[in-house]
């Protein structure tokens, strides 16, 4: 009995990340915000797959008395989350390398200063 608290956690994480993206002017802070949103979505996928009393869907050294398939958590969300984590790292690396290059050119990380492209 645990209502929908994990889902609410997910939404709060997304809110915090989105807050950083919307209101923080530092570019690295924006990257932090994106990472937090990413974590929230990953957590969302995992919480979708949890089944009460389930064990990990691995047959190696399975604990006794596991009912198949109802006694295992869902495997597909875990697979999706793995893919999503890799994509998150890739995006983060790219964003931060851009940030480094931007600092080299602009000598600032303020999003109100980094705007040569406007109008």
């Amino acid at each position: 009995m645990i209502w929908n608290i994990p889902f609410i956690t997910v939404i709060v994480l997304i809110a915090v990340g989105l807050y950083a993206v919307l209101f923080k002017r530092n570019l690295i802070k924006i990257a932090v915000g994106i990472t937090i949103i990413e974590s929230g979505v990953n957590l969302f996928l995992i919480t979708l797959g949890y089944r009460k009393g389930g064990v990990a869907p691995i047959y190696t050294n399975l604990p006794p008395n596991v009912e198949i398939p109802k006694g295992m958590v869902l495997p597909v969300p875990q697979a999706l989350t793995l893919t999503s984590i890799v994509i998150g790292v890739a995006v983060l690396a790219l964003i931060l390398s851009f940030t480094m290059k931007i600092y080299e050119h602009y000598k600032s990380l303020d999003s109100h200063i980094v705007r040569r492209l406007k109008e």
């Binding site: 929908n4 089944r51 047959y59 295992m72 869902l74 495997p75 597909v76």
Partner: peptide, 29 residues
């Protein structure tokens, strides 16, 4: 969303039951 820890499972039940036979791997993930 559905209450936590009670997901709908149609595709995943099939995968859990048949993954060992179809792919020969113990780790369903």
């Amino acid at each position: 969303i559905h209450p936590f820890s009670k997901p709908t499972s149609k595709m995943d039940d099939y995968i859990i039951s048949n993954a060992q036979n179809e792919t020969g791997a113990n780790n369903v993930v």
